[in-house]
Design a protein around this nucleic acid. Sequence first.
DNA 1: GGAAGAATAGACTGAACGTTCTATCAATGG
DNA 2: CCATTGATAGAACGTTCAGTCTATTCTTCC
Lengths: 201, 201
Amino acid sequence: MSGKRARGRGRRPVTREEVPVRERILAAATRLFYAEGIERVGVDRVLAEADAARASLYQHFGSKAGLVTAYLEAKGAEVRPQLEGLLADRSVPPRDRLLRLFDAIAGMAAGAGFRGCPYQNAAAELTEPGDPALRLIAGQQAWLHALIGRVVRESPALAAQPMLVPALVTLYSGALAAAQLERCDTPARAARWAAERLLAG
Amino acid sequence: MSGKRARGRGRRPVTREEVPVRERILAAATRLFYAEGIERVGVDRVLAEADAARASLYQHFGSKAGLVTAYLEAKGAEVRPQLEGLLADRSVPPRDRLLRLFDAIAGMAAGAGFRGCPYQNAAAELTEPGDPALRLIAGQQAWLHALIGRVVRESPALAAQPMLVPALVTLYSGALAAAQLERCDTPARAARWAAERLLAG
DNA sequence: GGAAGAATAGACTGAACGTTCTATCAATGG
DNA sequence: CCATTGATAGAACGTTCAGTCTATTCTTCC
């Protein structure tokens, strides 16, 4: 927007809050990659959105692939504490806490900018076998397994069913995937209904 | 009338089997789009794989977007009879027939070239709101709803549970999505286990 | 004051992209 | 025979892409 004049380093306007350029680029990439897809968004778009210089991107991330990796890492660092928070309250029975996962998806699916799970979408676009981002994606899914497994293991009755944890993970993934395809929160509510029945037994 | 197929076929060597150029292009696009993603595969790659001329693609499909639409249509035309076949045998109880859906996913997930659901992957890449391919994707999901709903309605006990159909669709979507992320058939088997319990009640 | 460091703008490269175009070739139908 | 049709090869178009590079500006530390 307004003209360029000196900021701390470089020439950013003083009126603009002091956000380091790395964070600005990462924030712009996060928004654009999620909303429009990784392949469809070029580095020029990211730089314009971040109001940053080309060299800054390559200084901080090395390449576009590095930026994609950082994007997925940032998404995980944002989501993991949220999900942990949902499941943390030990005064609530494990069953009821687990159902909150699906309520959260239902809330997101109703939102405007919802476009499914960033990891599922990235896995659809990144097809080179050795891509380090793919290991990140698998790691996030493994983390989800572990998170749900921890809560399930709080209840001996639930822990006795070895398929329960992968089933809940599959329901979770399916709620996100189907909500993206159907553009409504029905899949999330259906997943919640199914999870209720699996947890009731 | 005018029944003759006046197909002058350029200069293709006679030794090559006689496959119409449109089918060759569509087959090559289907293989490449699914294996490597829609955005990462250019028309040059498709044409080289199909051993076809540039003009033939634009003659038959109009644009790359038209080829993408045809790709998704072809995938649907291939998958729908397969799923209908799985659920057709009326000598088997509806419950057992529905479980075959998840066995089929487990079989596919174990296969070499498995890369999830082509519709989910396409939805991740195609982000323009008005894209006609997105309506195709939503239509395929609606068809799946209808297919499962038909089988569920064969059993009054199952039909009494209105959330059962969307829950099964969500499990199906989740099995495909999670199998892609985890690169194993565990999600499909977990979805089958969950579906068994939902259908047993 | 001056060197070092961080960030900027912008030109540039080489490749890939989707698309259009011309020209040619082979087979068919009248 | 000749016009039409479907397919071919390949050049060319303008655009976009990721990545490199030079030059400049500003701050901070010595």
